[in-house]
Amino acid sequence: MSVNPEFLVKIQRRQEERKASFTKLASANVLDDAARQIVELDTVELIQQLQSRKLTATQVLKAYIAKALELTGRVNCVTEFIPQAFEWASKLDGLDTVAGPLHGLPIAVKEDHDVEDWIQPWALQNYSTNPQKRMRLCENPIYGQTLNSINEKMAPGGSSSGSASIVAGNGAPIAIGSDVGGSVRIPAFFHGLCSLRPTIRRLTEEGVLQCLPEVDAQRGVPGFIAKNAEALSLVWKAILGNKIQNDFDALTVPIPWNETLFSSTRKLTIGYFTSLAYFPAFPDVKKLF
């Protein structure tokens, strides 16, 4: 199969720009002992230190960039670093009070989530030179192959492979992925992490590219990946604790966080199905049911 030479040039240019960007960042963000102490903090403890201002947003950002650069050199889990991040961190550090419950917390963003004025190629040639106006499987022709950061001989799962790999390798405390038939849950499972696929429209889909936009019943939904259930719940609580989503996206479900239900010790009743025509289970998986 022939490849359009114009696309090959664009891919090569993209790869060169990415390499130059990483080299520049590595010279300004060093993974020294202080940075290692930060990235090794439990996510809940990290949030507490950011809330108390024991750590600044800039300190935390620089530490995680340094770690992510080291990690991606080994497992190739990062496509780009968002340059505006330093400006955002500086603004947070200049505030008299913290901006909210996730103040200063670095979050890795899967490429199918738009970032304002930033090129999001979704690992596809057609998207590789088009900047987005709003806020993308584990191997592709632009970035190469992503590995499992826990065991490089194992697959990372997909399609949110980089999101799980970077969290498991301490390159980010939280990551955003997207899920249609397991694209957040599978890579989280492959790395021993926690995730949750939300109901459609529980989280806003604004700025999230749909791989099957014409099939409404198979919508991809955004979801978070975290080291443990406690950290995951803190992020969900912060996102759902007010009506901010519904204020700018009327299609989101206007149901706030229910602390009483969350804190209840009453046993849950969980329903599940064992067969789905679109994604049939393998025979060895069926034996588990």
Rank of each mutant, 00 (worst) to 15 (best):
I11R: 07
Q15P: 05
E16P: 03
E16T: 12
E16Q: 15
E17M: 12
E17R: 14
E17I: 00
R18N: 09
K19N: 13
K19P: 02
K19I: 12
A20K: 14
A20M: 08
S21P: 03
S21M: 13
S21H: 12
F22Q: 05
T23V: 08
T23P: 00
L25G: 04
A26S: 15
A26N: 07
S27L: 12
A28S: 15
N29T: 13
N29P: 08
V30F: 10
L31D: 04
A35V: 07
R36I: 14
R36S: 11
Q37P: 02
V39T: 13
E40N: 15
E40T: 13
E40Q: 13
E40L: 12
D42V: 05
T43K: 02
E45F: 00
E45K: 14
L46Y: 06
L46R: 05
I47D: 00
I47Y: 02
Q48M: 03
Q48P: 03
Q49G: 00
Q49P: 00
S52W: 00
S52K: 09
S52V: 07
K54Y: 05
K54R: 12
L55D: 04
A57S: 15
A57M: 05
T58D: 14
Q59H: 04
V60H: 05
V60R: 02
L61N: 08
K62P: 09
A63D: 06
A63T: 06
A63V: 05
Y64F: 15
Y64P: 06
I65F: 09
K67L: 11
K67P: 00
A68E: 00
A68D: 03
L69P: 02
L69T: 02
E70V: 11
L71Y: 05
T72S: 14
R74V: 07
R74Q: 13
V75I: 10
C77R: 02
C77Y: 01
T79R: 11
T79C: 11
E80A: 08
E80P: 00
F81H: 04
I82P: 05
P83K: 01
P83H: 00
P83W: 03
E87A: 14
W88R: 12
A89C: 11
S90R: 14
S90Y: 00
S90V: 12
K91M: 11
K91T: 14
L92T: 04
L92G: 07
L92P: 01
D93F: 12
D93S: 07
D96M: 01
D96F: 10
D96Q: 14
T97Y: 08
G100L: 05
G100W: 05
P101T: 01
H103R: 09
G104W: 13
G104Y: 12
L105T: 10
L105F: 10
A108H: 12
V109R: 05
V109G: 03
E111L: 11
E111P: 02
H113C: 09
D114K: 11
D114Y: 13
D114H: 12
D114T: 02
D114V: 06
V115Y: 08
